[in-house]
Simulated assay, not measured.
Amino acid sequence: MIFDDLVTTTKAMQDLKKKTAVKNNKAMQDNADTKYSLLLTQANHFVDVITYLYTELSVQKNHEILMSTSELMNALEQIVASGLASPDGITNADNTFKTLQSSMKKEWSKQYTDLTGATVSTLEAIKGIDPGNVGSCLQKIQPAENWDLDVERYQTMHDGLNEADHLIMELGLDDEIITFLQNTNSGRATLQDLNDKVLAWIRDEQLERKIRISFVKAK
C-alpha cells in the first residue's frame, strides 16, 4: 500500500516536472519569438532607410555597412531555419544590429552635414526676408539631423530641401548675395559689401527698409 502510494506520488512529481519544463520552455520560446519579431522589424526599418538614402537622396554608399546589413539579414533568416527562433542566435544578431546602428549613426552625422549644410546656411541667411517659408523648410529638414529608423523623417527632409531650392531660386540668389546676407545676419556686413549687384537685388526685392546699417563700436 505504502509502496503503491510512493510510486503514484513519484509519477505525479515526474509529470509535474515535465509540465513545468514544457511551460518554462514555452515561456522562453515565446520570449525569444517576441525578441526576434522586434529585431526583424527594426532591421527591416533600417534597410528601408538606407535604401531611401542611397537611391532617392544619392547619399554616398558605405560598402562596409551594406555588407554588414546583408550579413545581418542572412543571420536573421538562419535563426528561424529550424522553425523556432534560436535565443543564442537572436542575442548575436541583436549585438550585430546595435554595432551596425552605431556605425550608421556616426556615418549619418557627416552625411547630413554634407547633404543639408549649404542649404540650411542659406535659409538662415534669408530668414529675415521670408520667415514663414524659411521656417517651414527648416522644420522639415532639421529633425532628420539625428539618426532614426523612421524613413518618413528623411522623406520629409527631402521635401524640405526641394522646397528650399525652389525658394532660393525664386529669390534670385547667387553666392555673392548669399555671402552678403550671411554677413548681415552675423553683424559682419559693411558698406564695402554693397556692390552694384547686391544693391540691385535689394531694390528688386524691396528690402531697403529691412536692412539696417550701424557703426562698429570703437574698442
Rank of each mutant, 00 (worst) to 15 (best):
Q101T: 11
K17D: 15
L39N: 01
K23H: 14
K210D: 15
K61D: 06
G135M: 03
H158R: 03
Q192A: 15
Q78F: 10
N31T: 12
L84E: 01
N162M: 00
T20L: 06
Y112G: 07
A189H: 03
H45C: 07
H166K: 14
K19L: 12
I2Q: 13
E176R: 09
E107M: 13
K140S: 04
L199Q: 14
L207I: 03
V49P: 06
K17S: 15
T96I: 10
A189R: 06
H166V: 14
S186F: 02
D4N: 15
K98C: 10
E107K: 13
A200T: 05
I129E: 04
N31A: 11
L167E: 04
K197Q: 09
M104H: 10
A164F: 05
L149P: 01
D204Q: 13
D5C: 09
E170L: 09
A12D: 07
L199A: 13
L53W: 02
S214K: 05
D48F: 00
Q192Y: 14
S58W: 06
L84H: 01
N24T: 11
I2S: 14
L199E: 12
L53I: 06
L123A: 03
S186H: 03
S136M: 08
I90C: 07
A12Q: 11
Q42C: 02
D165Q: 12
A27L: 11
Q42K: 07
M67R: 14
A164L: 05
F180E: 02
M28A: 12
E163F: 01
F3R: 10
A27H: 09
E176C: 08
H166D: 15
D130W: 00
T96N: 13
E77Y: 12
K26V: 09
M104F: 03
T190R: 06
N133A: 10
H166R: 13
K19F: 10
V151E: 06
N133P: 15
V22M: 14
R203C: 01
D30F: 08
V198G: 00
N183Q: 01
Y154V: 02
R212F: 13
K26S: 02
K106G: 02
W201K: 02
S37F: 03
K11Q: 12
S186Y: 03
V22T: 14
G83S: 02
I129K: 01
A125K: 05
N195W: 01
L72D: 02
A21Y: 08
D174M: 03
A43D: 04
K61S: 05
N195H: 02
D33H: 08
L173I: 00
D196I: 03
K219Q: 10
T122H: 08
